[in-house]
Amino acid sequence: MRPVTSACVGIASALAASSLLLTAPLAQAQSARAEQVAAAETIGVYPPIQGSSTWDRFGQSPASSHHRVFSNWGYVNDWAVDIYQNPGATVVSPFGSKTVSGHPVNVTVVTVRPGCATGNLADGGYRIGLEATDASTGVVVGRADVMHVNNKPAAIAVGAGVGPWTKLGETGRFRYSSCYQVNGDSGAHIHLEVINKTRYSCYVSRAAGTGLADTTVVGRVGTVNSGPQQAC
């Protein structure tokens, strides 16, 4: 659990003044964090592949247990899943363009680097990290790491703003390694990881091999789940 706790102030009258001085900065910081939780709005998470794709095609990467490789804000991401499409499909941001109440969403690139620990793009392509912010309130709601991206455009760099159909790159087939154990084009996929700024995001549970469309919601950020790898 990402901690959101209440500050305690001593009640003894003799210690009240000094207690307040010592705890005021902590109380203010924790109050601000609690307010951010309350202010955050839910944003839908969609397949990071334009057009049709497949959820956990081979039943080997359910979101309930799939390995989470990356971290944001000092925490391991909340959930992960593999979403499949043959090489050459356009990869896009998974974040919706509006919050649940209609606020516009800004998405910014925060990470661009080789996704595999070897640092070699041939082993698994790029990891592109994206941050979603409620444009009406300025509250950062969540992040997503989109992994195994091929043919990344030069414009996709840290600090760039992207829309829902901005091309981040393409699906690709990389050489077989401990980072990418794929034997054929049907195994090409994007490894998607998602995390809330506070509390926990969730995924939409579905059977392995389920077909997805552009408008299929696969998860949500801005939710208040009690732990990682939970269904919405």
Rank of each mutant, 00 (worst) to 15 (best):
G211T: 10
A39M: 09
T90Y: 02
D82G: 11
K98Y: 14
T133F: 01
P62E: 12
A34L: 00
G10C: 12
Q50A: 14
A89Y: 11
G124M: 06
F70K: 11
T215V: 04
W73I: 01
P104V: 02
R199T: 14
A188Y: 04
H189I: 10
A157G: 03
T90S: 12
T5E: 00
Y203P: 08
I49K: 05
L212N: 11
I43Q: 02
P87I: 05
A213Y: 06
E131Q: 13
I195H: 04
S6P: 01
H191R: 02
S65H: 09
P48E: 03
T171L: 02
W79C: 04
Q30H: 00
A117H: 08
N196F: 00
S201V: 05
R57W: 05
Y176Q: 12
V162I: 11
R175S: 09
R173I: 07
I128N: 06
V105K: 08
E170D: 14
K197W: 00
N86F: 05
I83S: 05
S64W: 11
C8Q: 04
A154D: 12
A154L: 04
E35L: 12
T111N: 06
L21I: 11
G74K: 00
A38D: 14
I128R: 03
A17D: 15
D82F: 10
N86P: 02
Q60W: 08
T23I: 15
G51I: 10
S64V: 10
V76W: 06
A39W: 01
R206F: 07
R143E: 10
L20S: 15
A207H: 09
T215R: 09
T23S: 12
G59W: 10
G209K: 06
V37E: 02
N225V: 02
R199Y: 05
T5H: 00
H103C: 07
E193D: 04
A12N: 15
P87G: 03
A213S: 15
G159T: 00
Q30W: 01
A144C: 13
A63P: 06
G125P: 09
K152G: 04
S93Y: 05
V92E: 05
H103W: 08
T54N: 11
